[in-house]
């Protein structure tokens, strides 16, 4: 697996947990296994790894749940964002691509866990596009944009995460 020196930041939705990596592995992939589906509440997990020694938590600490004998799943205890998959034996942390500040920087190279791929995965290009986030319900989208409690997609000097209810 190739290593690439690159500055990467990311974190959870509320901003209570933030991370920074200075090197990444060239392993971006989509995992369709049932464990990953449940962990992220999604049809697959999109993951890319940082070597453990190149990853620091710059704000807060992730909560960890051990999903199997060798695997830890990290998430934010305040807002729930799934942050990583880590096999405790292999020295790297697979970060969830959606939690990266620039999620488009690591296009996946492969589908894994394909035994559990949703039956409609091949049809995604044919599912009707209903427009941009603002396109459909403009007022609703504007109200959310104006009042959301999501951390911006960049590092911040300080941040008051909205406490969970």
């Amino acid at each position: 697996m190739d290593r690439v020196d690159i500055e990467v930041s990311g974190g959870c939705q509320c901003g209570a947990v933030r991370y920074h990596a200075t090197q990444m592995l060239d392993n971006s992939h989509l995992c369709h296994c049932r464990m990953c589906q449940k962990a992220v509440g999604g049809i697959f997990a999109a993951l890319v790894a940082a070597p453990d020694e190149k990853l620091v938590w710059t704000r807060g600490e992730p909560a960890v749940w051990r999903s199997s004998e060798h695997v830890e799943r990290g998430f934010c205890a305040n807002c729930g964002t799934p942050l990583f998959y880590r096999d405790v034996n292999n020295g790297r942390t697979n970060l969830t691509i959606g939690s990266l500040d620039n999620p488009g920087d690591f296009p996946p190279h492969a589908n894994s866990g394909t035994e559990n791929m949703v039956g409609w995965f091949q049809t995604i290009p044919t599912i009707e596009d209903d427009g941009a986030t603002e396109a459909d319900r403009e007022d609703w989208a504007a109200a959310i944009k104006a009042s959301n409690n999501q951390h911006p997609d960049r590092d911040t000097e300080s941040w008051n995460a909205k406490p969970r209810q």
């Binding site: 939705q13 509320c14 449940k38 962990a39 992220v40 509440g41 909560a63 749940w65 999903s67 799943r73 990290g74 998430f75 934010c76 205890a77 305040n78 807002c79 729930g80 964002t81 799934p82 609703w140 109200a143 959310i144 104006a146 009042s147 959301n148 409690n149 999501q150 909205k162 969970r164 209810q165």
Partner: peptide, 19 residues
């Protein structure tokens, strides 16, 4: 529950994180 904006809440498992 995390209030992601003034207009909506997102619900997740506090133990394992699943949204």
């Amino acid at each position: 529950e995390f209030r992601s904006s003034d207009h909506a809440v997102r619900e997740f498992c506090a133990r394992c994180g699943t949204p």
